[in-house]
Design a protein around this nucleic acid. Structure first.
Length: 235
DNA sequence: AACCAGGACGTGA
DNA sequence: TCACGTCATGGT
């Protein structure tokens, strides 16, 4: 078994199925995870179940840019309270109210514009799947947000790379600290079966693991995984 | 009381 | 390309 898959197995055994992406209306929980534990649905890959949930994932992906999930949850709840957490409804919401609603998630001026432009794009799709290039052309949608949307909203096998991924796997010796997004993405996709469920879990597990050991410096201080991977018997 | 959070864009080398 | 400043609220 290849190394990236073995690391996945170790993380899975340690933290269990994560059940990403969290959804407001989902009753599930994940008690082992850090931060908010609501809205997760471990081992249930049927989410998002409908168009509104799919849209909610997209908006959450934009809101969580450089922001912790509990803050995003507040913003999403505000939108829900305004009955605006649906593409047609959000389109009708005026920009100032949108800004107020998403304030807890920070960068509200930028994010309001991003959400606005994304919503117009989303509506233009009319049940069609977006392509990665289309998403990347939108203002405010970079590689990570695009891949999050494709993987978690549309269940397409696009591996999501975030700051934690780079931090953990450069520490583990798989990549350089300054490796590009696409470079890291390809490393995972080349060494793993093209399976959206696997990609979903793996990314979530990396985040969970990194929150515990790679949030404050020095990174990887008490990371047991680091010890395992660095031993000679590994690989 | 700094530092960080599930980034992306605009700018100048 | 690429490094760096900017965007903003709220946890710890």
């Amino acid at each position: 078994m290849n190394l990236l898959k073995r690391i996945y197995s170790i993380l899975l055994k340690k933290y269990g199925f994560q059940g990403w992406w969290p959804l407001l209306g989902c009753k599930g929980t994940n008690p082992t995870k850090t931060g908010s534990v609501k809205g997760y649905h471990p081992k249930d890959y049927s989410y998002p179940k409908n168009d509104n949930q799919r849209f909610e994932v997209c908006i959450g992906a934009i809101l969580t840019q450089n922001t912790s999930w509990p803050q995003v949850e507040k913003a999403l709840l505000n939108l829900k309270g305004l009955n605006a957490l649906a593409p047609q409804k959000l389109k009708k919401l005026n920009q100032e109210k949108l800004k107020q609603a998403i304030k807890p998630a920070g960068y509200f001026n930028q994010k309001a514009r991003k959400i606005k432009e994304f919503t117009d794009f989303y509506l233009s799709l009319k049940n069609r799947m977006p392509t990665r290039d289309e998403l990347l052309k939108l203002w405010g949608i970079g590689p990570e947000t695009a891949d999050s949307i494709l993987l978690y909203a549309f269940k397409m096998p696009e591996f999501v790379v975030d700051a934690y991924t780079r931090r953990v796997f450069s520490k583990l010796g798989f990549i350089r600290k300054d490796a590009s997004y696409e470079e890291i993405k390809k490393l995972f996709e080349k060494n793993l079966p093209r399976d959206s469920r696997l990609y979903q879990e793996y990314h979530a597990l990396i985040v969970e693991h990194a929150k515990k050991h790679y949030s404050k410096k020095p990174y990887g201080k008490k990371d047991l995984l680091l010890n395992i991977v660095k031993t000679k018997s590994f690989k």
